[in-house]
Amino acid sequence: MNALYARPRSVASLLMAAPLTWLVVVYLGSLALLLVSAFWTYSAATDTIDTTPSLVNFGEIIASSTFRTIALRTMGMAALVTLTTAIIAFPIAYYMARVASHRVRGLLVVAILLPLWASYVVKVYAWRIILSEQGILNWSLEPLGVSGPGYGDVALWLVFTYLWLPYMILPIYAGLERIPTGLLEASSDLGARGRQTFRRIILPLAFPAVVAGSIFTFSLTLGDYIAPSLITSTQFLGNVIFSQLGAAGDLPLAAALGTIPVVLMIIYLLAARRLGAFEAL
């Protein structure tokens, strides 16, 4: 004990050993395995995996118009969901951070966090019931002479927007809350109108928070397969990865497909950095 006491560094490394092992072995290790296995090949005829590195899987993905369409559709959905959640989340976050009283703010935070405590699958199934032909949405729209979207991509867009909204609200809220009131007062003292202050002071300062939120909504949409499989019959990246693993047993092709979201996210993060989103760090 005393020996350790004299060596604070040893203590630190001992304490860090377990979480670091977890991070390296479980987190990065599995990611590395994913990348490596993407270069293997699977033979359906013999049901075996050949571990000689090759680019066959990537060639197959690029050559296949189906995979291309699915990748683009997934990306489009992720972008659309990100945009929608940002548009909905910003006013809510702004109200919470700048307008609401302490009490209301607390209630709103709880209201936003509360759905996160419910099981994800329960929420998706709830949406299935809402959106179904005889569901509450069609029932309430009936007097207006219109009907809901039914199951499909539009419905999925609604569900994703609902599911990921808290992940957008919370970072924006945190970002807005930390803008010093002094800056806004100074802006006003110097003659800026409300709109001008918003555009030139608040928005630039809150932008990194929006990007932070968008990283969540974008990546969560890219990777999800349960909501698409329950809400729509069209396929998204997660679904084809699942069917390559589940039905075809083609682990290498699934791994190669799995690298698409990883690559997309890297491009996304680089673009975000170019936009100056990380300069505040």
Partner: peptide, 28 residues
Amino acid sequence: DRRSRTRRAWALLPAIALLATACAGGGA
């Protein structure tokens, strides 16, 4: 001041990320 404030804002992220993985994990 601004730097440290923004940094604190970013410090929220790991917590949210944990939440996200927890939810996704439960769903899977």
